[in-house]
Computed example of a mutant assay.
Amino acid sequence: MRTSEERMDLIFQRTEEIQKEQQRKKQRWLEAGCVAACLVLVVSLGLVMPGLMDQAVDGSVMHNSGAASLIASQSQLGYIVVGIFSFFLGSITTALLFRVKEHRRKDTEKKS
């Protein structure tokens, strides 16, 4: 037979486990949402950028003469911007996932 103190300890342990599991679920949804938002942003930017760059080539959008003068008159600028933006988002996502992995590893070490 268990004492009341042992029962209370078990209740507190189970409550802590449930709260940690709920926190992990929220974290997974947040991670998935961030990745999906980045993907949507890159795809939408990739779809919109060629149209914007065609306008720039036609002359309806004015550029500063000193800013990227080698590629400002070509429509490839849009693809370059999308590539740089995608690389930047990929780097941020990699760093974020690495930190999450380290955090989870520390949590499992604390449990052991």
Results as ranks from 00 to 15, higher is better:
L10C: 05
K20H: 05
G59Q: 05
R99W: 15
L10Y: 05
F88V: 14
A36M: 06
K101R: 15
A67R: 01
S60H: 10
V42R: 04
M53L: 10
L52G: 00
Q74D: 14
L89D: 03
A32S: 08
G66M: 09
S86Y: 02
F85W: 06
G90S: 01
M8R: 14
G83F: 08
M1G: 14
K25F: 11
I18E: 02
Q76G: 05
Q55M: 15
E31Q: 14
V81D: 03
G66L: 04
V40E: 00
M49T: 04
E6V: 03
A68K: 06
D107F: 08
E109Y: 08
G66Q: 09
R2S: 13
E17R: 09
K111L: 13
L30R: 05
L52F: 09
L10D: 11
G51M: 12
I11Y: 10
Q76P: 03
D54C: 09
V100I: 15
A36T: 11
Q23D: 08
R99H: 13
Q76H: 10
K20G: 04
I80Y: 01
V82P: 00
W29L: 10
R105P: 03
R14S: 02
R2A: 14
Q23S: 08
P50I: 01
L39C: 09
S65D: 13
S91Y: 14
M53V: 09
K20P: 00
D58H: 13
T93N: 14
A37R: 07
A32K: 07
P50K: 03
R99K: 15
H63V: 03
S112N: 12
I92T: 09
S60L: 10
F87C: 08
V57E: 12
K106S: 01
A36W: 06
F85Q: 01
Q23I: 01
L30F: 07
A68D: 11
T15R: 07
G66F: 05
F87T: 07
F88E: 11
F98W: 15
G90P: 00
V82K: 00
E109K: 12
V35T: 00
E31D: 10
G51Q: 13
K111A: 12
I71S: 04
C38N: 11
R28V: 01
E17S: 02
E21K: 09
I18S: 04
K20Q: 09
S86P: 00
A56L: 15
R24W: 02
G90F: 01
L10F: 04
S44N: 02
R14C: 01
Q22G: 04
A68R: 04
T15W: 01
F88R: 07
F88A: 14
G59D: 04
E31A: 09
F12Y: 12
I92G: 04
P50E: 06
